[in-house]
Design a protein around this nucleic acid. Structure first.
Length: 545
DNA sequence: ATGGGTCCAA
DNA sequence: ACGAATGGACCCAT
């Protein structure tokens, strides 16, 4: 205890000494209940948040385990007030429960009368509550099940939802038996979801989230509605389900702009759900079309606001959310928690790496210095132009060139967000550029050439964030990114994480202009991956060999 | 019917 | 706070 890697402070921050021998072990221990806030070179700052504590609670951790972890790794005596606070916060989850009453239907039950009285007095909660059954029980209109959970979470008293689910229309689904097997973590994830009832499974890019979905469908053996972000993803779900389950072509429908098939398993885009046709919402048509036994949300970190609203009305159906990064930049993690459900499973990226499911990766932040004239232009630029100015400095082009030379012979992706910059890079490198306007046919041709090694360098725009059809590479060079998007960074690193046949590691370079907002945004982007144990080595562009 | 193109919302 | 990609609607040519 006297020389642990962690400093625990009463303001709920945890300081982790990165170079300490026990740092990795400690990171793993605190990850379930703390979120990484800052990650400079030597000391990382984590914060113990209520939501993280409640997720830990829902996953079966108790306050004692959390407290033990803190005490075990702490360098100094742990502030008592913090321990008390952690125990109290965790105990808040489950003090209120939603249950099914044999006579009164959906009820809110409390094991602490004062808490019930407190929340019933809230203006937000009051209209959702029906009559009082007894001192500890109040009825709730079934249609308010979701919105009530949202409101209670905001009040700091998240309800545990034990009201159960409708079975939905049964439909036989089994996993295909030939030629493959569920990986252990995929099986665990599907089971953790099934026993939890509904909630979110978090797995790194390329870890087979679709397969976890398929396994969950096999558990449910019921009609399933799958919601996805784009049509490419819809096709891939269909292909994967055909390959991995007993489902056949005519049991799987696509419900998109062009096709309107409703089948026992239906894959719909988020967008088609939110558009109106002659004043009527499409989603009503879709939700009422079948008695769905399971609703599956792909890329739950991208759920648009209208889908949250609809999901509030779907609380009697089992819901599974899938994502690589539960963090959202819009702060709606609480809505994911209350409307989809708590985190049921996550596999830390580094553990997956240790087990060989994803390739080991070195992350390198390369700092470039602006020329004097650029610095002056930057200093005098309007606030809204500044990021673009520093993110697209010509100095980066030269660095990309030398990195490409250094990795000659390897498959390299250059990823950025400004089309001008990417076009220029493509020209300098003599490499094709893939952007939004690139036709699907052309994309496929280039992807094939890249896969076969005919092309070694590919420059890609934000299409890399969406189209999961992008081929895997060994080296990724990021030249600019969306302000501070953590999930984008994770997605881009994911591009190089497919295990290499020769067992070699992958490289991820992030090019950053020194002493500018580019540097700030880069630091923010890196946080999620730092939380997963990826350390960015910082080097100066001049020191590139 | 089907494939392609343009425009627009969020 | 921004630029870019997207899906979907609609239109036109086969």
């Amino acid at each position: 205890m006297s020389d642990g890697p962690l400093i625990v402070q009463s303001d709920k921050t945890l300081l982790l000494e990165v170079d300490h021998a026990d740092a990795a072990e400690c990171r793993k221990a605190i990850a379930p209940f703390a979120e990484l806030e800052r990650a400079p070179e030597h000391v990382h700052t984590y914060r113990v948040t209520p939501l993280a504590l409640w997720n830990a609670r829902a996953a079966g951790h108790d306050a004692e385990q959390v407290v033990d972890s803190l005490i075990q790794y702490s360098r100094y005596p742990v502030p008592h007030a913090l321990l008390v606070d952690i125990a109290e916060t965790m105990a808040r989850y489950g003090r209120l429960r939603l249950e099914k009453h044999p006579v009164h239907g959906l009820v809110l039950v409390s094991s602490d009368r004062a808490v019930l009285e407190e929340v019933l007095r809230s203006k937000k909660v009051q209209p959702m509550i029906g009559e009082r059954v007894d001192a500890d029980t109040a009825t709730v209109h079934p249609s308010e099940r979701g919105t009530l959970k949202q409101a209670l979470l905001k009040l700091g008293w998240p309800a545990e939802d034990l009201a159960g689910y409708v079975d939905g229309e049964a439909h036989p689904i089994t996993l295909a038996e030939e030629g493959w097997a569920l990986r252990p973590y995929q099986k665990e994830a599907a089971e953790a979801f099934w026993h939890g009832g509904s909630g979110v499974v978090v797995l790194p890019c390329g870890a087979g989230k679709t397969i976890v979905g398929a396994a969950a469908m096999a558990h449910a053996s019921a009609t399933t509605l799958i919601l996805v972000t784009n049509t490419v993803s819809a096709h891939q779900w269909k292909q994967e389900l055909l390959r991995r389950t007993s489902l056949t072509e005519d049991e799987i429908g696509e419900y998109t702009g062009t096709k309107k098939e409703i089948r026992p398993v239906t894959i719909a885009t988020y967008q088609v759900m939110t558009t109106r046709r002659q004043g009527a919402y499409r989603h009503l048509e879709l939700f009422d079309a079948r008695d769905w036994g399971l609703v599956l949300y792909d890329e739950v970190h991208l759920l648009p606001a209208p889908i949250f609203r609809m999901t509030a009305d779907l609380q009697a159906r089992r819901r599974l959310g899938l994502t690589a990064t539960l963090v959202r930049e819009d702060g709606r993690e609480g809505d994911v928690f209350s409307l989809i459900g708590p985190k049921r499973y996550d596999a830390p990226w580094k553990e997956m790496e240790n087990q060989g499911w994803i390739a080991p990766a070195d992350c390198v932040e390369v700092r470039v210095t602006l020329r004097d004239d650029e610095r002056l232009a930057y200093a005098t630029a309007e606030a809204e132009d500044r990021y673009r100015l520093c993110a697209t400095t010509p100095a980066k082009t030269r660095v990309v060139e030398s990195l490409v030379r250094k990795h000659a012979g390897e498959q390299i992706l250059v990823i950025g967000q400004y089309l001008d910059q990417l076009d220029e890079l493509g020209e300098h490198l003599g490499a094709p550029v893939i952007k939004g306007e690139t036709r699907v046919k052309e994309r496929e041709r280039l992807f094939d050439a890249f896969r076969s090694g005919e092309i070694n360098v590919l420059v890609v725009s934000k299409v890399a964030n969406f189209s999961i059809d992008l081929p895997e590479a060994a080296v990724a060079i990021q030249v600019s990114g969306t302000f501070g998007s953590r999930q984008e960074e994770a997605q881009r690193l994911g591009r190089v994480l497919r295990p290499k046949t020769d067992g070699r590691g992958a490289r991820f370079y992030s090019l950053v202009s020194r002493d500018t907002v580019d540097q700030e945004f880069a630091a923010h982007r890196q946080r999620f991956l730092a939380e997963q144990g990826y350390a960015y080595q910082i080097i100066d562009a001049h020191d590139l060999a």
